[in-house]
Nucleic acid binder design. Structure first.
Lengths: 148, 148
DNA sequence: ATATATTTTTACGGATTACGCAGTATTTTG
DNA sequence: CAAAATACTGCGTAATCCGTAAAAATATAT
């Protein structure tokens, strides 16, 4: 999908996800309907997402761990997709360097790191190694709230 | 700040950042004003953020790199805060393990990895080592759009 | 180049929502 | 227990959202 200047400007305005489409429209010199149509298309195509995010430190019993993963498989992207479907996983990055994947995991009181490894990671084969980085303090880290 | 069940429910509803407060209110059995004031308080205190997020892969000339940082200083949190103020840095995690910090950096055509290291990281002292992980594919990774 | 099809934008009206404020209820504090 | 602070509700008004239909712009085909 081609992102033109108007779409970029719309996205920038949505730094505040609640700003009225009308205001964006006025700032950009287009109609409110145009903004609405474009936002809908951007979100439908997965380019844009307007969501509430939480600072995990502010929510009791919420923890974050980053996991560096090495896999035996050559198809890193496919493995990345598999990881992205595991419970607790908020995002997966396929990367260059020491690891193949860097996975962000959200933990709760009921869903601990142990559970993540024993119940989730264990279901994926050809995992060569994992290395955990427990986040004990963060800056500007905002994540979508898990449903439960 | 104490997060009660109502706030948790509000945050969960805001998975769609555009959902009307009225609808949240009806679902929760409270008034629209209550939802509004609570959302305001949560955002004012930095617990909640309602924002438009982009899939960096969908925006031309946008790249993401994760950087593992080891510092010589003992005060990791302070170093983390310093990093969080650098241009391009979207978030910083202070972690256990091989690195002290894991930094997420957003790159553009004008702001390359080289520039990030030479112009930004170099201004911070007592950095023992850095290790880059260039993200060449991601799943569910959504980041706030940089202003420029 | 003209005509046709497709997409995008605009305009507009009714339904819905956001906002401010005043009053009431609830909780906290002394 | 009383006073103060905080939180919640109800309501009127202004603004926004949303569907639809027409107009404009863009792309495609003959």
């Amino acid at each position: 999908m081609y992102i033109d200047e108007i779409n970029l400007a719309i996205i920038r305005h949505l730094k505040d996800g609640r700003v009225p489409f009308k205001k964006i429209a006025d700032d950009l010199g287009v109609s409110e309907g145009t903004v609405r149509t474009r936002v809908k298309k951007l979100t439908d195509e997965g380019v844009l997402d307007i969501a509430g995010l939480v600072d995990p430190e502010a929510i009791p019993d919420l923890g974050v761990v980053l996991v560096g993963v090495k896999v035996k498989d050559m198809d890193l992207v496919k493995k990345g997709e598999e990881f992205s479907k595991l419970k607790g996983v908020t995002s997966v990055c396929v990367v260059t360097g020491r690891y193949d994947l860097i996975v962000t995991v959200l933990l709760t009181r009921d869903f601990t790191m142990l559970r993540f490894y024993t119940d989730e990671v264990s279901t994926i084969d050809k995992v060569q190694s994992v290395e955990s980085f427990v986040v004990y303090k963060s800056f500007n880290l905002k994540l979508p709230m898990p449903l439960t």
